[in-house]
Structures are given as structure tokens and as C-alpha cells.
């Protein structure tokens, strides 16, 4: 059975009476890429900050390889690597000087430090520009050095907090490949936070969906998507029609049907209702719904089908879009 690299139990962080992280529990196995997927402000960075010893939790426990992050912070810090969301680099210094400095913070020195610096520079393909000031780099190059700084001491587990925000497609791909290589070649465990579902789907073995400080689901991407069956159909109507909803819910290709909350209409605007339908099979469900609406002589204001993916899983679980 794989070893637990990281275990988070009942983690809570409150600011006054407002919980930013509320009873979060999960674990990461050795060699696993674990994703924390959620919109901005969901509590992903706060969770990572507590795991990486930046501030203590209000309650709950965090252990890395069995070591409590509060009681054995220094030992934990030596085996974790952090790639923060901000470009945590000194812009006037060169990449090489930045990496040397961060390496010294882990107690590296002499030939060992020099070798590590060259190794990570090569890993992120930045050896050629290593002596240039970081401020002269493109956004993607800065992100690559940001990643290199997190790898300088060869950590056992790497925390990547939204590493692709503001990055061009080429550098984004480079970061994806780096993460895959680290995991494949070095067996490095990775905690990857993002609000891009494509990234989570591509990179992560398991994903925790987090919203408003709470984890609403944890599973493999495949199982999470399977929750939706054949996808989601959103139907706009003039107003709520309970008999119609019950009839749709009873269709053979439909798993469930529920009203979604809609904003207050503007004066003079038609009061629309939106029915969210979870389908077993999207095409069959769509035909059956259209026939039923026609039979009931109901006016269809709009219809929208959502592919079965993590975005629609998030919508299904929270009623919100990931990028809202």
C-alpha cells in the first residue's frame, strides 16, 4: 500500500467568525499528483499556506511523511517545495543568483549548490538566459524560474499554486511537461491547485473540488465526471412549471431535474425559470425533453447542453461556474 506523503485532517482557518477553510480533509499518496480545483477565493491558497508552514490553522492537523507541520516545521520545510502563485523572485537579480540564494536557504552550499542550480536551470530549459536579470524575462520564463526555485533542494513533495496564471501557451505546455516528468521520472508527489479544469483533468490522479472553503468532492477525474452520467441540460422556461419538471425527471434518459435559482428579473422582463437536467445520455434526453415540452404546449425560452467534464461537475456540485 502506498505511503501517505501528506495528510490533512479537519483543517479549519477562520478570520474572525468567517471560515476561509472549513473542515478540509484529504491525503496525498507517494508519487501521486493531487489537484485542488476551485474558483478564486475558494480556499486553495489558504490551504497550501497552512501546509507550507506560512501560518497555523485554527484547528485540525497536517502531517507530511508523518511529521506534524507545526511541531516539526523545519524538518517539514526541508522536504517540501513551494511554487507560489506570485512570481516569488527578485526581479533585479539573475535567475542564477535567485536560485543560489533560495538554495542557500535550504542549507545548500559549495559544489552541491552549484550542481543543483545548473540541474534545475537545465530542467526548466533556462540555462542560456540564466545570467540575465529576471525582470528581462517573459511571463512564461519567469514562471519556469519560479518552478525551478521550488525544486532547488530536490523536495519529496511539490506544491504548485496556480502555476499557469498569465502564462503563454508554450510556457504552459512546458510547465505541464515538467510536472509530468517530475512525477514520472522522480516519483515526486505533487499538490496542484488550479481553477482550470483542463489542467486538473490532464495532470491529476485525483482531484478535490473545493468551494467556499469546503471540499465538496474528492475522486479521480474519471469518477467525478461519471457522476454526471451523460451530461447536463439547462432548459429556460417562462416560469416554473412543477408538473413539467416531474414529467422530465421521469423520462427514461434523465437522471434528475431541479430548478436553478435565477436572478430577480428587470421590470418588464419575462420571469424565466431554469431547469437543470442531469442526463443518462445527452442526445436521447434532449429528444425526449423536446417532445415532452411540445406535448405540454410549453414555450421553450432557451436550451443549453453541457459536456460531461469537470466544469460541469463543478456546476453540478456548487451551482456555480469555475470562473465566476
Amino acid at each position: 500500500m502506498p505511503e501517505k506523503m501528506l495528510e490533512v485532517k479537519n483543517l479549519v482557518k477562520s478570520y474572525g467568525s468567517v471560515p476561509a477553510v472549513n473542515d478540509v480533509s484529504f491525503y496525498i499518496e507517494t508519487g501521486e499528483v493531487f489537484g485542488l480545483l476551485g474558483p478564486n477565493g475558494a480556499g486553495k491558497s489558504t490551504t497550501i499556506s497552512m501546509i507550507t508552514c506560512l501560518f497555523p490553522p485554527t484547528s485540525g492537523s497536517i502531517t507530511v511523511l508523518g511529521r506534524d507541520v507545526q511541531k516539526e516545521a523545519n524538518a517539514v520545510k526541508k522536504i517540501i517545495g513551494v511554487v507560489p502563485q506570485d512570481l516569488a523572485l527578485y526581479p533585479t537579480l539573475s535567475a542564477r543568483n535567485n536560485l543560489r540564494f533560495f538554495g542557500e536557504m535550504y542549507g545548500l552550499g559549495g559544489s552541491e549548490l552549484r550542481a543543483r542550480v545548473e540541474s534545475v536551470l537545465e530542467y526548466v530549459a533556462m540555462t542560456d538566459r540564466a545570467n540575465d536579470a529576471v525582470k528581462t524575462y517573459s511571463g512564461g520564463m519567469k514562471r519556469r524560474i519560479n518552478l525551478a526555485a521550488g525544486l532547488i533542494h530536490n523536495p519529496r513533495i511539490l506544491f504548485l499554486d496556480e502555476p499557469t496564471v498569465g502564462v503563454d501557451p508554450q510556457s504552459r505546455n512546458h510547465i505541464f511537461e515538467s510536472v509530468e516528468r517530475l512525477n514520472r521520472e522522480q516519483g515526486m508527489s505533487i499538490l496542484y491547485t488550479t481553477h482550470y479544469m483542463e489542467e486538473a483533468e490532464r495532470l491529476c490522479n485525483r482531484i478535490a473540488i473545493i468551494d467556499q472553503g469546503r471540499i465538496v468532492a474528492i475522486d479521480t477525474p474519471k469518477n467525478l465526471i461519471a457522476m454526471l452520467g451523460g451530461g447536463i441540460i439547462k432548459i429556460g422556461l417562462k416560469g416554473e412549471n412543477e408538473p413539467l419538471r416531474a414529467a422530465i425527471a421521469g423520462l427514461p434518459a434523465v437522471l434528475s431535474a431541479a430548478w436553478l435559482p435565477v436572478p430577480e428579473p428587470e421590470p418588464g422582463q419575462i420571469n424565466r425559470a431554469v431547469l437543470k437536467v442531469e442526463a443518462r445520455q445527452a442526445n436521447d434526453a434532449l429528444i425526449q425533453i423536446l417532445n415532452l415540452v411540445s406535448e405540454k404546449d410549453e414555450t421553450l425560452m432557451s436550451i443549453e447542453t453541457l459536456e460531461p467534464n469537470l466544469e460541469s461537475v463543478f456546476l453540478h456540485l456548487t451551482g456555480k461556474k469555475l470562473r465566476e
Partner: peptide
């Protein structure tokens, strides 16, 4: 502003 304090606090210093 650069976030270097955050990074440094996650190192053993």
C-alpha cells in the same frame, strides 16, 4: 509585493 517573503517563510530560515 514580489512574494519573496512568502517563499522564504516556507524555507527553513
Amino acid at each position: 509585493h514580489f512574494g519573496t517573503f512568502r517563499r522564504l517563510l516556507s524555507t527553513p530560515i
